[in-house]
Design a protein around this nucleic acid. Structure first.
Lengths: 235, 235, 235, 235
DNA sequence: TATGAATGAGCCTTCATTCAT
DNA sequence: GATGAATGAAGGCTCATTCAT
């Protein structure tokens, strides 16, 4: 009956749904706060997000926020933890079962990444972590291990598959993975920073951007003997 | 009777480097403030850098800072002009006078970019702008115009040169430039955020990173008929 | 085991004036702040009144002031509304229901104006606005609309009433209203500036001043045929 | 040869004009500063006038201002002293030699007052003194004695003349003078405060204002038997 | 549990005044 | 005398956090 602390309730959430509305709301509090915080952190960053606004958006009072999270920084960490969990698994699975050639696989994976992660709010978390990592070393380390590590592993396996099938040529595998990571991170950063300010035509068109990057990555800029690809505008 | 002060002053006027300390300091002030501001902006970001600390690091009082720069934002713009904007000219010049083939040019330019901008503190400014653009639209606009615009122009001209000389093949020129921009921005972001936290071998080795990106960009991952490049580890 | 807090709270809810101090203070805050602000604004003017001092005089901290009033200027406007604007209604009502002749009405209204507004601290606000209007155009505009407009309307209606009843003669109604306004404003200015410094007999006696102005305004300086008013000193 | 202090030079100004341009400028410094200060004090009041701006308008450096006037407050006092001296004499003389009837005299005097004092910058000093008297009791006292006293005397003599000639009827002479003073002060205050903000039709037209006040003061609002003045709009 | 009034350290910016030259 | 760089005490306002209820 008496749970030792608020966080216990948060961690054990969603056990059963037998309580009345009010009770259920109580159970949902941390989640609502986390959702509100996610929105605002993505929108404004850590420093510029006001605690009061998070509480307001979650429909509770300022004091309640501090009841569940002892400080703004802890709230931040909780948001990161909540939002960057095991989405790699499904991505991994999809990779494992892919049957086409490796170029097609790369095209497919980037598209899926954009549709499921990049285009959504989750990418704002990545932008936020990269932006504020220096002021939150804990989170940086956590993110490094939880997201960057698995991500790099997956990408490395994709390139390795191409090499193994005799489709890809990669000189320095460990660093070649950044040829895929960098364009994705760049797209995310733009979407959530300069791109959010730039008025009209300065905004990147994600699909076109991804298509262009893929083609460069696959074939490179250099023409070679017998190369008769046409030069032209985007599709 | 003491000799009249006016006469003394007249006789000693401007002979050598008299009115020493004060005058010399005065001339140096803006530079000292700019240097201090660069350090702190890079270290803590724009919002988290306090005017007073900039002044203190430059060895002057709070008020003195505002004697030279009317606001924190103008100080920041001055830092940008001092450390980035002004360098495009020389970079442009180098591009114009380059005589080798276009692949070599790309290799050379990326190396020069790293040595002169990326490796130094100036790159921290780029990281900062991308991180905080959304909260400081004026700064974002300024940077867009002052740095990103010229940068994109230069890169577009480099690719265009390759196309014109029949060396490069580029399907979508406007977006192909991001194939060069993204790896640079990514390197900068890592250096100043997660990379600054990662302890040991997690840090990117910039030269190796750049070499790997260039090779991918030039030749792509895909093998093509007659492609007999060796597969191997980094140099 | 302690009795559940929730039950205790429920049983003792809202019975008497429990949750005493804090609640009662909360309700009183705006009033206390307004009173403190009125004092200080009248005493020192707008620019010279420090927010912190207002808060201190109201017995709260700096931050609390801004909890109730978003800026010093809004605080000032609230003071105006509290002390002046709102009173025109009752003054208007009194005018509407007055039944005597118009000369009597003027005498009555000026007396009432002095007793209710002029003699009190509120008149210091008028002095302040006139003194600082030029440096605070927002305040000037606000006051113009909120106080001067209604004031002029009321006075115009008073003169119009006299004309309509065949009691008054007014050549230029729009400017005749200043014949009433000017003496009131002058009295206020004196009371809160030079008069506040003048030591003894230099201070204006308000009642006598008002009586003298009224008589001049009603009858003028000029004798006319059949005028047998006595010439003499004040009562 | 060595004058003890800067103020000596100021006080003894204009002895001979045998010096070169530069010298003469030096002699003129205090006057230029005073003129600049007058402009700015009238325009912005005491608190809002920045020392540096006064110096700049006088064409000297900030330091020089403090060479002649030990503080902003002393500068303020000097401005008041400089600008409110014996203009009463000529006004007095004109009164003494006036030959028309007393109503005409009042009309004439108010017109002259406006043309020579009210319309010019000098009236800004009066506004300023009344506005800031409370913060500068010295100046208030000085002004009381130097300006208000003589002014009241002159006006009292004007009314007395009307009484003596059987043209005026005045019940309370000591306070009747305010019937003339109040409209003038009010006009000045409006001109330099609210009137300076009000956009178009809210501005007082001085001549019309003065004409209207005079008529009220001479004849009053009340009709009396045999009074057949027309009621109407302004001329 | 939940509230929201209250706090107070902190931040950017201003400006009268000083003083080395 | 003249300069103007430098100072530092304020001042308006913000906001994370506390705590009585």
């Amino acid at each position: 009956m008496p749970p030792p602390a608020a966080l216990t309730k948060f961690l054990s959430a969603r056990s059963d749904d037998s309580h009345a509305k009010r009770e259920r709301r109580k159970e949902a509090r941390p989640g609502e706060l986390l959702a509100a915080a996610l929105d605002l952190f993505v929108e404004k960053g850590f420093a510029a997000t006001r605690s009061e606004e998070v509480a307001a958006r979650a429909g509770v009072s300022k004091g309640t926020l501090f009841l569940y999270f002892p400080s703004k920084e802890e709230l931040f960490k909780a948001v990161v933890r909540e939002n960057i969990s095991g989405r790699f698994q499904e991505w991994n699975d999809e990779f494992e079962s892919f049957e086409g050639d490796s170029a097609e696989m790369l095209r497919y994976c980037l598209k899926v990444w954009w549709d499921r992660l990049g285009a959504g709010k989750a990418s704002g978390i990545t932008k936020l972590v990269i932006s504020e990592a220096r002021n939150f070393p804990d989170i940086a380390a956590f993110y490094q291990q939880e997201v960057i590590g698995p991500g790099k592993d997956l990408i490395r396996r994709m390139l390795q598959r191409g090499i193994d099938r005799g489709e890809f040529h990669v000189a320095d595998l460990d660093y070649a993975i950044y040829s895929l990571i960098a364009p994705m991170i760049f797209l995310i950063m733009m979407k959530h920073s300069l791109g959010a300010c730039a008025p009209q035509g300065f905004q990147l068109e994600p699909e076109r951007y991804i298509a262009a990057q893929i083609e460069t990555l696959l074939h490179g800029f250099c023409k070679r003997p017998g190369d008769d690809r046409a030069v032209g505008a985007p599709a």
